[in-house]
Design a protein around this nucleic acid. Structure first.
Lengths: 190, 190
DNA sequence: GGTTAAAGAGTGAATGTTCACTCCGATAAA
DNA sequence: TTTATCGGAGTGAACATTCACTCTTTAACC
């Protein structure tokens, strides 16, 4: 059965995700990842060519999972502002529920893995947000700037704040998330 | 003379800063840092207790240097908006001129160094921005939220965008920096 | 000033540890 | 029995850190 095999594979990935979130890439040796997943080191290398491949695969998986949930009940019927608010608050909810994912992603995004390697475009779901922005710009609802820039304005603050949340200097919750969404919308709108 | 000695110390620190910015913490061995600084490995350990201490000291130094320059010609005489714009654009200018510093800082901020250790408050200069916010809030010029949150709204976007700038997907320059400052101000203001 | 001794800075080969990764015997599935 | 999957001791390489030593500067003395 493939099921068992893929179960181990997933266990290795989540084990690595947690350890890396907590200790960083370097301080999460393969042996520890394997032990934590309840498998032998050899098994890890059966499923992943090397540690880098494992890390890169976790990255892609985790992005996919996150986007799937954030855009799960996204509807193009709603007004632009509501759509934005929905995406924003869904993102906050996801971050709060999955701090390890945040830690992993941000570590990855600020490491040479991300800087030095070619862009991996998954984009499929990211495209929904891009479409939203394009539509909003055509209607002069949001500022006419490059989408990357609008993304920065829209999500830069919440990522920044979540970092502070994790160090304990701010308490982020759904309510504050809503306020942030409002403020970020103000920055976006024409 | 102390001068020579501190010269080596500084050389080690800048060498480490560059290597870490480029290769990350783990892929910058002490031997390479020393070689790059033109000193022996032993010398590194004469000036720094260990690699962690070196990294932590670079972090504090680099923050200090950055704040010194950003707030160099900050004046409390100007209107609130102008003060904010000045700080923001000075920050952009600094980032553009010192990408290695950005890479180092962000790597540090998203690593266990920052997450797991107690807060190191230098704050001296950060305090100027906090004061500005407090004043602006008292005058109902900016939204009444916790300073950390306002910081996130103010600087989250530009940090996010600079990351994209470094991967080449956006070209950040002084002009775009100015536009970002304007947009972020919109998010801040009451 | 000249001589010599003490102090301190600088070094890199040597050390012990840790790691990523392999390999082969054990185990389970078919 | 044959075949596919696992596991973890084993391996070499790479690393952080040390230490025994040299070279340079300073201090002390005449």
């Amino acid at each position: 059965m493939k099921d068992k095999a893929w179960d181990k594979r997933r266990k290795i990935m989540t084990s690595a995700l947690h350890l890396i979130a907590e200790n960083g890439f370097h301080a999460s040796p393969a042996a520890m990842i394997a032990r934590n997943a309840g498998v032998g080191v050899g098994t890890l290398y059966r499923y992943f060519k090397n540690k880098d491949a494992l890390i890169r695969e976790i990255y892609m998986q985790v992005r996919q999972d996150m986007d799937d949930i954030i855009y799960r009940d996204y509807s193009e019927e709603l007004p632009v502002r509501d759509r934005f608010m929905g995406i924003f608050t869904a993102r906050v909810k996801y971050l709060l529920a999955h701090p390890d994912t945040y830690k992993f992603l941000e570590q990855y995004h600020h490491s040479p893995y991300y800087f030095n390697k070619k862009r991996e475009k998954s984009a499929s779901d990211e495209a929904l947000f891009t479409d939203l922005l394009d539509y909003a710009k055509s209607r002069h609802i949001v500022k006419d700037m490059d989408n990357k820039i609008l993304c920065a304005i829209a999500f830069g603050p919440i990522l920044f704040l979540f970092k502070e949340h994790l160090t304990g200097s701010v308490r982020l919750d759904d309510e504050l998330g809503g306020k942030m969404a409002g403020a970020c919308w103000d920055a976006l709108k024409f």
